[in-house]
Design a protein around this nucleic acid. Structure first.
Length: 719
RNA sequence: GGGAGUAUAGCUCAGCGGGAGAGCAUUCGCUUCACACGCGAAGGGUCACAAGUUCAAUCCUUGUUACUCCCA
């Protein structure tokens, strides 16, 4: 007997298992011969991740498109897989080692540690794929891919793909090595990208510091103005005041900049100041970066620890003095006063402010002038929002993203790739037009190791393999020379940018690549237009000379009922797996799909899910009605050794709530027609249906329907 | 500072150049043999505000206000 209320848990699990067993989601399943292809690559979730409500929406939309096109008998591939998520994964395993009091990363050594991560990946990584199955996603799970490949070995196809892209781009001059300021994460001790930095406004201070002029130089500084802004009063100064939000970086100052048109300081350009506490003699330079209206109009220049200062330094030929170690403490270098060496950066700030204050108490024309409260933007680690990111001067690998961006922009401009909704084209262009060279190397161990080797003088040799690099090096030095592999790995997004063509087998010319590239549509949230969409465009156009997709459908973010972002700290997270548990995958997905209108964030209200759960039950009961539970045919059926009709009905109900797939049809083909044939009395005939083991039953012949295609084989689900 | 979006019933949202809608909530009536996660009915909105275009505006245009998001 069917329950009055639909209990999704058991039914969905079984149907899902049947689908998978029948290979219903395999690429091309149920396709007409010669059918056109329909491909979607899943935005690969992090291997460390678990299904959140955004994934549920994202994959529901993909599933709708995929199942619809499968019903049209197209050759459909929904390519699933996961991203190796460099930083996040390495952190998880490191934390695990710490918790278990096992040898740490550096004690283990690289090889062991990476092995350990692969182990973790095998054991607990990728739970999200099972969660996707639970969601009902009809991806071809037999083709699951991983951005690091199967084992990360050099001959692995994913690794070969990444290597080829790197080597080729290097050959074309689009990848190069350079010492530049990067966003440095002092906790993880690696470079991160601009996009992984979030500027957070905090209540900070501007410290106004007096830098004494060297060589006895003095000048007249205006201290009073008339109504027209003309100075009326001056005082003689032998110092210049600079303002900074980061006093500790003064240890690395190598200049003071004033605006070339600023009359107040005109006489000082070319003169020198003596850096307080340090004693270094540094020049005063004229540079338009100094804004006369801001602060005192004079700025200290720290090329090694500020992006703008770096540029000023290059323009004015100033020294780059690094004051920090990779973990954010003060270096123990000769240029640094002994008192500050080894101090944490924030401790050093306090110490330096204290020392400058003491200096001012001794002599009112020296040291700290005053402190101003000011809201300032401070770069933070976008994930934790806790760690302050440090502009840091290091040797890194860079991509000339501005060059690669041109075809990617042209494609959208010329309508070869459409963003839906269209307004995101503005965002896309705005970002690509201002794109800067992108740092792609990361000081991690988990990831695609950079295919570069170095000679004894750090000359890089980029090649497909060790032998080729060795040959390059030997040729360069004119004799056999030892080379060393680059320790760093590539940013995770470097490999995910290749996803649409790496998954079907590139750089090999596989039938899959030929068949399933380009993909039909990309479904994603707008938040990764830059991270992912734009980069896939660049790489696809560069290496396959065709867009990886011609349409990108961007869906809204899912928020809570009040429109707030879901976050653990706010405690308003709605876990899709809990929803599925409680209301069923159908109700959950129906809700998300129904609410996924364009141009409006989804405010997920539980009572909507409840409403659709009720709707699912309604369909369930409609099926009960059709089966006419009042008439008890089952006793007879059972005595004939036949299965109760419940199972087939389950499936029918499920198909009603979910778009059928060829797989579903395949499994349930013998239960056609979907509605029981009616007897002449008009009452549903349970016996008529249930007694018929195949579609060519008496029930059907009694009341012929428009002839459906005969099932491919006489297989009955009851068998 | 630059850009984008949204504003429709108590709530969450569809809709659309010519009749203002759904679900939930509310109220009332139903132990109707598929379903109370139900059935039947009712109340409830100056479609944010202002101007314009139009025979006609919730819808198109412009402006205003409020909120949200992205970039600096």
């Amino acid at each position: 007997m069917l329950e009055k209320t639909y209990e999704p848990g058991a039914v969905e699990a079984r149907i899902s298992a049947d689908w998978l067993k029948a290979n219903a989601f395999a690429a091309g399943a149920g396709a007409k011969p010669g059918a056109e292809t329909y491909t979607i690559v899943i935005p690969p979730p992090n291997v460390t991740g678990s299904l959140h409500i955004g994934h549920a929406l994202n994959n529901t939309i993909q599933d709708i498109l995929i199942r619809f096109n499968r019903m049209l008998k197209k050759d459909v591939l929904w390519q699933p897989g996961m991203d190796h998520a460099g930083i996040a994964t390495q952190m998880i395993v490191e934390r695990q080692l710490m918790e278990r009091q096992q040898p740490r990363r550096r004690e283990m050594g690289r090889e062991k540690f990476v092995e350990r991560i692969w182990e973790w990946k095998g054991e607990s990584g990728g739970a999200i794929m099972n969660q996707l199955k639970r969601l009902g996603a009809s991806a071809d799970f037999s083709r699951e891919r991983f951005t690091m490949g199967d084992n990360g070995a050099a001959d692995d196809q994913m690794v070969r793909a990444v290597t080829k892209v790197f080597v080729e781009l290097h050959k074309r001059g689009l990848i190069y090595r350079a010492k530049r300021s990067v966003n440095w994460h002092p906790g993880l001790e690696t470079a991160i990208s601009d996009l992984e930095v979030e500027n957070i406004e905090i209540k900070g201070h501007m410290w106004h510091l007096r830098y004494p002029l060297a060589d006895g130089v003095t000048y007249q500084f205006p201290i009073a103005y008339d109504e027209e802004g003309k100075p009326t009063e001056w005082e003689t100064r032998d110092y210049i005041i600079v303002a900074t939000t980061r006093p500790e970086t003064m240890l690395g100052d190598s200049g003071v900049a004033v605006h070339p048109d600023d009359p107040r300081y005109a006489s000082l350009v070319g003169k020198f100041v003596t850096l307080p506490l340090v004693g270094r003699r540094i020049p005063i330079v004229a540079d338009e970066y100094a804004d006369p209206a801001l602060g005192t109009g004079a700025v200290k220049v720290t090329p090694a620890h500020d992006f703008n200062d770096f540029e000023v330094g290059v323009r004015n030929n100033l020294e780059q003095i690094n004051v920090f170690t990779t973990d954010g403490s003060i270096v123990s270098a000769e240029a640094i006063p002994a008192a500050y060496r080894g101090m944490d950066r924030f401790v050093a700030r306090k110490a330096i402010v204290a020392d400058l204050t003491a200096l001012a108490e001794e002599d009112p024309t020296r040291g700290l002038d005053h402190i101003e409260d000011k809201k300032i933007m401070v770069p933070h680690d976008e994930k934790s929002k806790l760690v302050v990111i440090e502009p840091f001067l290091t040797d890194q690998w860079w991509v000339k993203a501005d060059v690669l961006a041109q075809p990617a922009m042209a494609s959208v401009r010329e309508g070869r790739m459409k963003l839906v909704p269209q307004q995101y084209e503005n965002t896309y262009f705005a970002w690509l037009e201002n794109i800067r060279p992108r740092c792609i190397s990361r000081q991690l161990w988990w990831g695609h190791q950079i295919p570069a080797r170095y000679g004894p003088d750090n000359e890089p040799f980029v090649a497909y393999d060790e032998a080729e690099a060795q040959a390059l090096a030997d040729a360069h030095y004119g004799q056999p020379t030892p080379i060393k592999r680059d320790e760093d790995v590539l940013d995770t997004w470097f490999s995910s940018a290749l996803w649409p063509f790496s998954t079907p087998g590139w750089p090999d010319e596989t039938p899959e690549l030929k068949r399933y590239y380009p993909t039909s549509v990309l479904v994603t949230g707008f938040d990764i237009i830059f991270f992912w969409v734009a980069r896939m465009m660049m790489m696809g156009l560069e290496f396959l000379e065709e867009e990886p997709f011609h349409t990108v459908y961007m869906h809204a973010p899912v928020r809570d009922e009040k429109g707030q972002k879901m976050s653990k700290t706010k405690g308003n997270v709605i876990d899709p797996l809990v929803l599925i548990e409680q209301y069923g995958a159908d109700a959950t997905r129906f809700t998300l799909a129904a609410m996924a209108a364009q141009g409006r964030d989804i405010r997920l209200a539980i009572n909507r899910v409840e409403g659709y759960r009720n709707f699912v039950t309604k369909i369930w009961n409609a099926a009960r009605f059709l089966r006419n539970e009042r008439v008890p045919p089952r006793r007879g059926l059972r005595s004939q050794g036949q299965q109760a009709p419940a199972q087939s009905l389950d499936r029918r109900r499920h198909r009603a709530a979910l778009p059928p797939s060829p797989g579903a049809l395949l499994i349930t083909s013998s239960t056609k027609p979907p509605t029981p044939p009616m007897t002449s009395s008009g009452a549903p005939s349970a016996t008529g249906l249930s007694n018929s083991p195949s579609p060519s039953s008496t029930a059907r012949t009694k009341q012929p329907r428009p002839k459906p295609a005969p099932p491919p084989h006489g297989r009955s689900i009851r068998s």
